[in-house]
Simulated assay, not measured.
Amino acid sequence: MKLNFKKLGTGKPFVILHGLFGSADNWLSIAKGLENHFTLYLVDQRNHGDSPHADEWNYKVMVEDLKELLDDQKLDMVYLMGHSMGGKTAMKFACTYPEKVEKLIVADISPRYYSVHHQKILEGLNAIDLSSIKSRKEADDILAGYIPELGIRQFLLKSLGRDSNGFVWRINLPVITKNIEEVGKALEEGELYDGRTLFLAGENSNYIQQSDLSDIEQHFPKYEVEFISNAGHWLHAEQPESVIAEVLNFMN
Rank of each mutant, 00 (worst) to 15 (best):
G49P: 01
S29P: 06
G195Y: 09
T177G: 05
F93Q: 10
A139I: 08
T177I: 06
V243W: 11
L198I: 03
N165A: 15
F155S: 09
D72F: 14
E35Y: 03
R112A: 15
L173V: 08
I128H: 05
R162F: 09
Q209V: 11
T39A: 06
V243S: 13
A245T: 15
L75S: 03
M91Q: 10
K12F: 07
T39K: 13
G151P: 01
L157E: 09
F220S: 02
K100V: 06
G195M: 05
E64Y: 13
L173F: 07
G184Y: 12
G232Q: 07
A245I: 07
L66H: 05
L28H: 10
V106W: 08
N206Q: 10
E224A: 14
N179T: 07
D50E: 11
N179R: 15
D71S: 14
L248D: 13
H37C: 13
R196A: 13
Y146M: 00
L66E: 01
G82L: 04
N58R: 05
D71Q: 15
S211R: 12
E138I: 08
K12T: 09
P221M: 08
F199T: 07
V43D: 01
F93C: 11
I109T: 12
A144T: 00
S135I: 08
M91E: 11
C95E: 06
K178F: 00
D141N: 12
C95K: 04
L235T: 10
I142C: 02
H48M: 02
S242L: 14
V116N: 14
L20D: 00
L192Q: 11
I228D: 09
